[in-house]
Every structure is written in structure tokens, then in C-alpha cells.
């Protein structure tokens, strides 16, 4: 009888075995299923090319229309300084150092912020003690911490990492906490009457239920980490891609300014893609299809 019921409900979850379709039909089906995504990719590429074209036109004709493009480097000039820079160990060192600061600052923020958010969500007293302090410190932009950071930490490197840490810490904490408050109490009760005790409920219910919000926090935190890092490097650094960009301005290397900016953009995009990929790995139940 149970098999008959499964059939009666007609849920299209298992496809009955049929003759394997030809390559042509498969390709056509794949195309139909992914039509939306292919369209988006195509339009995305066109729009990027259009951006480059507009940039090229504005700079080659040195347009002045409220905004002055007289000194702005053209895409070709930026590409020129890019090809030079990738053979320059100093440029690579700037990038490596920035990435290392992000890695350390962001990892520390995640290692402290996620468990703290989970504990604050579970234990009222911890929440009551820490939340007011966090709420007061949270609106202070990480850049405003620069003078304080220089006083607090013995080396420049440490204060920059500290700024990066602060930038990403609060989004991670707040989102983790938010995730904890949204855990469905019915799931907790379901676990309880299956014999789960406090620790198991934390591990098996609260933590996985909060994961989507934790990853939102990590994604936002990574973005703010880059913002804070670049600001800190511009103000107090001697190395790093933010410092590189600022130095290019001081040395009137206009093409390098744009190169630094693009490098920051690419690094920021890459790191948020990494986090998104990690999210898919950790939460397979959230991946569609």
C-alpha cells in the first residue's frame, strides 16, 4: 500500500526511468532551463563592455561637463600600467599584504563574532550585558577608530588589522544574533521530544538554523572589512593596495590610481564570492536544484 500512496500523491521528485535522450535534446533542454541565466550573463558582458567604451570615449576626448575627465587615465593607459605592475614585485607585495590583513582581521571577527552572537542569542544574561555596549560601539565607523587604534597597538600593522577586525565584527555579530532570534521554536520543541538536551539542541537546531544569517553577516562583514582596510591603509599604512592607490595620487601616477581601485574591486568581489561558495558548501539544503 505505501508504494501506491507515493504514486497517488504524484510528487515529481523521482523521474521514472526512460530511454536516454539524444545529445541534441539534452542541449536544447539545458538551454531552456538556463535561458534566464544565459540572458543575464550576456547582458552583463555587454554592459561591462559599454562601461569600458564610455570610459574610453570620456577620457580620450577629455570631456569637461561639470565633471572633469582631463586627468582621468584612459582604459588603455590603465591596462598599460597593469601589465607593468604584474611584473613588479612591489605591487604584488601590496596586494599580498592587503589580503593577509583581511584574512587575519576578518577571520578574527568571525571567530569572535559568530560564537558570541550564538551565546548571546541563547543566554539572556550575556545578551543583557553585552548588547548595550555593542549598540553604542556599533555606529562608530571603523575609520574613526584609526587614531585610537594607533594608540592602542604597538605596531602599525596591528592597528590596521584591528581596524579591519572592527569593520567586519559588528555585522557578523548582529546578523548571527538576529539569526538566533528567528529560530523556529517548534523545531526546538521537536528536538526536545526526540530526546535532545541543551547542548544537542544548540548544535543540531540553533546553529544550523542560524547559518543562513551567519553567512549574511559574513558577506556584509567582508565588504565592510575591505572598506575599513582601504581607509586605514590610506591614512596610516606603508604598504597595501589602499596605500598604493593613495601613493599613486601623491606621485601623480594617474593610471595607477585607477589600477589600485580596480584591484580593490576585484579583490572585494573575489572574497565575497569565496564566502558565497563556502555558504553553498555548508548549507547544501539551501542550494536550489
Amino acid at each position: 500500500m505505501p508504494a501506491a500512496i507515493a504514486e497517488a500523491e504524484r510528487v515529481p521528485a523521482v523521474t521514472p526511468p526512460v530511454a536516454p535522450p539524444s545529445f541534441g535534446t539534452l542541449a536544447l533542454r539545458w538551454y531552456r532551463l538556463n535561458q534566464g541565466r544565459l540572458r543575464a550573463t550576456a547582458i552583463g558582458i555587454i554592459s561591462l563592455l559599454a562601461f569600458l567604451l564610455v570610459w574610453h570615449l570620456l577620457t580620450t576626448y577629455r570631456v569637461v561637463f561639470f565633471v572633469r575627465f582631463t586627468n582621468v587615465p584612459s582604459p588603455v593607459a590603465v591596462y598599460g600600467s597593469f601589465t607593468k605592475a604584474i611584473h613588479d614585485p612591489k605591487f604584488l607585495m601590496h596586494i599580498v599584504l592587503s589580503c593577509r590583513r583581511i584574512l587575519v582581521g576578518f577571520s578574527l571577527a568571525a571567530i569572535v563574532g559568530v560564537p558570541l552572537g550564538l551565546i548571546m542569542g541563547r543566554f539572556k544574561l550575556v545578551h543583557e550585558v553585552i548588547f548595550p555596549v555593542a549598540e553604542v560601539l556599533r555606529p562608530i565607523p571603523a575609520i574613526a577608530w584609526v587614531p585610537m587604534a594607533i594608540m592602542l597597538w604597538p605596531t602599525n600593522e596591528q592597528s590596521i588589522v584591528f581596524i579591519t577586525f572592527l569593520g567586519s565584527f559588528f555585522p557578523i555579530l548582529v546578523n548571527t544574533l538576529h539569526g538566533m532570534t528567528l529560530v523556529d521554536p517548534v523545531l526546538v520543541r521537536a528536538a526536545q521530544c526526540l530526546g535532545a538536551r541543551e547542548r544537542a539542541i544548540f548544535r543540531e537546531v540553533y546553529f544550523p538554523a542560524s547559518l543562513p544569517h551567519i553567512f549574511t553577516g559574513l558577506t556584509v562583514g567582508m565588504g565592510v572589512a575591505w572598506v575599513s582596510l582601504i581607509a586605514a591603509e590610506m591614512i596610516s599604512g606603508q604598504y597595501g593596495i589602499g596605500y598604493f592607490t593613495w601613493e599613486a595620487y601623491s606621485l601623480v601616477q594617474y593610471a595607477d590610481i585607477a589600477l589600485g581601485m580596480i584591484a580593490i574591486g576585484v579583490l572585494g568581489l573575489g572574497s565575497s564570492l569565496l564566502i558565497r561558495g563556502a555558504g553553498h558548501l555548508v548549507m547544501p539544503w539551501r542550494s536550489t536544484r
Binding site: 523556529d184 517548534v186 523545531l187 520543541r189 521537536a190 528536538a191 526536545q192 521530544c193 526526540l194 530526546g195 543540531e204 537546531v205 544550523p208 538554523a209 547559518l211 548549507m283 539544503w285
Partner: peptide, 19 residues
């Protein structure tokens, strides 16, 4: 208090989505 001796079925299914 709740225990595994008394199984419960909820209207909202309450399956763990991550399992």
C-alpha cells in the same frame, strides 16, 4: 518535561530543513 518517551507530531511538520 519533554522526553523521547512521548513522541509528538506538529501541524507545521517541524522537520529540520537542514537534515
Amino acid at each position: 518535561g519533554p522526553s523521547a518517551e512521548r513522541g509528538m507530531v506538529f501541524q507545521q511538520y517541524s522537520l529540520f530543513p537542514w537534515k
